[in-house]
Amino acid sequence: MENNISLTLKVWRQNGPTEKGRFETYKLEKVSTDSSFLEMMDILNEQLVNSGQEPIAFDHDCREGICGMCSLYINGRPHGPDDDVTTCQLHMRKFKDGETITIEPWRSAGFPVIKDLIVNRNAFDQIIAAGGYTSVSTGGVPDANALPIPKDDADEAMDAASCIGCGACVAACKNGSAMLFVSAKVSHLALLPQGKVEAARRAKSMVAKMDELGFGNCTNTGACEVECPKSVSISNIARLNREFLKAKFQD
């Protein structure tokens, strides 16, 4: 049932990439438990604008858990205290009346803060650009049914491909590692015959780019998998290791 709750919010504020940040504390009264977390942020921002202050900058777009734009580290967890959801799908009924909520940006050397809660996730694009594709140009491709693909492989590829590129894996990882993200893409394409053709090259270049960008090393804690809003499995990381090692040994 719908309730109204009052909250204390400790929010990270930072004016720009090079500025020093700090926590600011805000009070918010009568927030409907039916509202989403980001709608709660909207209410807070409306309150700030109406009092002439700058609203809190945070990333968000589709608000239905698929674009991967929203982030936020809420009370010690990326995407907050609910499981298998993004922040935009998190609802206030997960919080108690009078609770203090700490809201921080993703923290990782690979994701520098741009402003307040917004971080720069451009590194993910760079990793994809390094090889996260099949090298086919538009036109001149065979008929879609020319190559049968076992349903299990297609389904497994789909599970890996469901990654939304939000970066929660990096945010959750004590090592700031991007292995779950990279492995999801390498797995998605390595599982399909279309992607297998250049699987070795792909694994090598994507890992090299990931390392170059300063992401940490995977120590298999599995925190990424727990916090992934799309439940991408770390068995993809084993596959990435396999693909990479195979590729390197063939050199």
Binding site: G76, G176, G216, T219, G222
Partner: peptide, 24 residues
């Protein structure tokens, strides 16, 4: 890994469940 984690630590700690203590 420490370098990759960055200089700013999470003020709200880490509440990720289901992660083995030893692994961390």
């Amino acid at each position: 890994n420490n370098k990759a984690r960055g200089n700013n630590k999470y003020a709200s700690g880490n509440n990720t469940k289901e992660v083995m203590w030893a692994s961390k």
